[in-house]
Design a protein around this nucleic acid. Structure first.
Lengths: 227, 227
DNA sequence: GTTTGTGAAAGGATTCACAGCA
DNA sequence: TGCTGTGAATCCTTTCACAAAC
């Protein structure tokens, strides 16, 4: 910190991306700790809980971005950290999520309980296939794409989830952006072009497997030709 | 390259992780190009196809790890690159995948066509719930966890996918490792402890949304208090 | 002229290691 | 004594920029 002795926490002129990506993992672990009745945790313990992505030094550096919520010689207050990270991630508000594409994956997402418990509310489901319209999935009716701007407008913004086949993804993406969505989670196995100011994160199941495949392949090679 | 004029491609004393994570994206884009009948591609064009994760310089550096498969002034041969990346990722072989947990998400994964077309074969489905045993999902019967070592043994190794609730994930992970699985894709929202030599990749849907939430939150703040 | 391949520079992220505080 | 907070050092990644090759 630049100078000591003033307000307890000043922080945050830009949190590194790598840290932002880990804050949700800490939050997850802290909620689990809270459920177990634990009230204090050290950087060592928290790192262990997070698994392979965590080291004690990383935990401390990451958390120091939020201000000083730890006590030397003792550790961090679980409840306080939960509050601080939640605030930083913008989870004070419950974000509306719209899911486009109600195939296999869309169904699974619509039925996933983990969203509600972690700050998100599924606001609506959409599908381009007229045959699916009106079908009720996870308690919500499937709506036509034409309704998208209305729903996003009503919600005052939303996070968009693309769960369509690859061929449809760019069109859907364009429609989401036109409707005012500025954050998109893309499950379709294709890259998306978006204007500045729109964030896209992608999850491609086959890509994850291929990365594992690379390492598995290497391990196998190492056994045959050791050293 | 250290010295010119010898064999056409020498390569690969360790590919950086960041590059490994992008090779599947290039492969995806190249397959799409091939389907369109395109036979040559430049680093600029490939970068554009990959979307936000690509820059021409990155493409060139990444591909240079595989050896020299480009032609200056012309670009890369699509077919040759597909072959070269596939080989590097170990996709000559079709990897068996075992899925544990046949809930919402497990169903979606079992029914996902994208695995087969991209180098993977679902070898078996498992669930700890006796009520689900024998149920047929995506053409495969749900089997008891006790069968896991047999199946992994028969296949000579496999990639494990954990699609269970968080509470069960660590136990399932231990069983997978005990059965000989050394590469795991974890969809359960919890960190996993694994011994050395086992790779874990994780996909947590709520975590992805929370990262988007952070940026959305920031964007909103920026509008209210503009610089 | 065009586009690759690659050193060199710049920018981030992680780890180290220890001062500072409870 | 124990554990946080943090500069310094290290490592990894990305970008730049240009010579070499077509």
């Amino acid at each position: 910190m630049t100078h000591p002795g003033t307000a307890p926490a000043r922080r945050r002129p830009g949190i590194p991306d790598a840290t932002v990506a880990r804050l949700p993992l800490y939050l997850r672990a802290l909620h689990a700790l809270a459920d177990e009745g634990v009230t204090r945790v050290s950087s060592d313990e928290l790192a262990a809980r997070v698994g392979s992505a965590g080291s004690p030094a990383k935990v401390r550096k990451d958390l120091s971005c939020l201000g000083s919520y730890g006590t030397r010689g003792v550790g961090y207050d679980v409840e306080q950290l939960v509050a601080s990270i939640s605030a930083e991630l913008g989870l004070a508000r419950r974000w509306p999520v719209v899911i486009v594409g109600v195939g296999n994956l869309g169904h699974a997402l619509a039925g996933y309980g983990g969203f509600a418990s972690r700050g998100f509310a599924i606001a609506a489901l959409f599908d381009a296939d007229p045959a699916r319209l009106g079908e009720v999935v996870g308690g919500l009716p499937v709506r036509p794409m034409a309704d998208l701007p209305v729903v996003v407008g009503e919600q005052g913004g939303a996070i968009g989830v693309i769960a369509t086949p690859a061929e449809a993804a760019q069109d859907v993406c364009d429609e989401l952006v036109a409707a005012g969505v500025r954050s998109i989670l893309n499950f379709a196995p294709t890259g998306l072009q978006v204007p500045d100011g729109v964030d896209v994160r992608k999850v491609d199941l086959a890509v994850e497997l291929q990365i594992l495949s690379f390492h598995e392949h290497r391990k196998a090679a190492r056994q045959v030709v050791p050293a």
